[in-house]
Design a protein around this nucleic acid. Sequence first.
DNA 1: TCCGTTGTTGACTGGATGGTAAACTATCTC
DNA 2: GAGATAGTTTACCATCCAGTCAACAACGGA
Lengths: 203, 203
Amino acid sequence: MPRTSDVEERLTNAAMELIWENSYGATSVDAICEKAGAKKGSFYHFFESKSALAVKALQVDWRRKKARMDEIFSPTVSPLDRLTSYFEHVYQAQAETHGECGAVLGCPYCTLGCEIGTQDRAIGEQVHKILDLNAKYFESAIREAHAQGLISAPDAKGKAEMLVAFFRGSLTQARIENDIRPLRRLSSGALELLGAKPRRAAK
Amino acid sequence: MPRTSDVEERLTNAAMELIWENSYGATSVDAICEKAGAKKGSFYHFFESKSALAVKALQVDWRRKKARMDEIFSPTVSPLDRLTSYFEHVYQAQAETHGECGAVLGCPYCTLGCEIGTQDRAIGEQVHKILDLNAKYFESAIREAHAQGLISAPDAKGKAEMLVAFFRGSLTQARIENDIRPLRRLSSGALELLGAKPRRAAK
DNA sequence: TCCGTTGTTGACTGGATGGTAAACTATCTC
DNA sequence: GAGATAGTTTACCATCCAGTCAACAACGGA
């Protein structure tokens, strides 16, 4: 057997998938181990508890998503295009998982945060941290769009909070209804909410 | 012992509270029985399963909330005032539970729907049904506001979906952050989103 | 008064749960 | 090649879980 194994990574991936697809409470350590092709002993060699695994899984998942977001929200792109292309990206990603596993799963952070916010401090804080970072992209794009005169948003933080609420609410709705339709109007709705002209040639 | 008992009602109330405060998965039948002061045997005398109890609890909870909403969305009130006073009401209610149990709990339907949408068909459908009904109030108020020239919303259904997403997203945010702040801007944000003049004297 | 209905009780079941422990194996370093 | 270290395996545990069951109590109607 190799010196370094990828069991830890397989475990975090399996955990993230199962928790996202079902829920934290409905995801057992046994199920995670089976999906990852690992034994329970290995699980507790790498993680001190199910909760610790969830925290790690969130971190890993976010690191991947952050890389994508840094691309999409690159300063080389016009601020409003950052937002619309991000929403397009989210729509595509949700449509893809819908095709793959037959269900629209929405935002894993929101779902998990909602479920265990009052129960598990560590997970709750991790979720909170990630969602805060995620919102920063919106705020920055809005601030810049305002500075460039593309929209009028003197209170960029407030506008960002509204947009974030709309965005996450749409994802939540999509998960509950198991329907991607609420996500189709994400980018046009965002422009409307920001008071930008809805007609835009992307790219 | 009395011919008719209130055990059933106590069970649904206890279930709703526990599920809302924690989650469906984290709420055991034993815990519900203890909170309701009932024995497990009684539980299964009235309900065939934990899932069935949850469905019933949702129905009872919604019936109560619907009565309040019918008042608030009374045709005697100006359509935009219906919306703002509903949001004020929600804010007050959330602030109250925050004071009582130290946590902002958000929307029970969204939280529950998110958690078990993919796992329990019956509960998922019940949640879906309630959320649809809830959204109808928004759509009707928006349509009427448009007809009265208070706002411009030719696509009332679309606007309502946006507003609902914003509303529920804010509640979700509030739960995750355990903070009522996202709910303070609910009514002003709604008016902004609808393109109404933000200055209004309520009542 | 007796019977059927409605509601109540508490002990019980079998399986799943999160987590443990100790033995074992492969690899790296010296 | 001897340890030390990192990782793996299996059997195991106590607890909790949803759900069952059969006996029992209170009332209403006949």
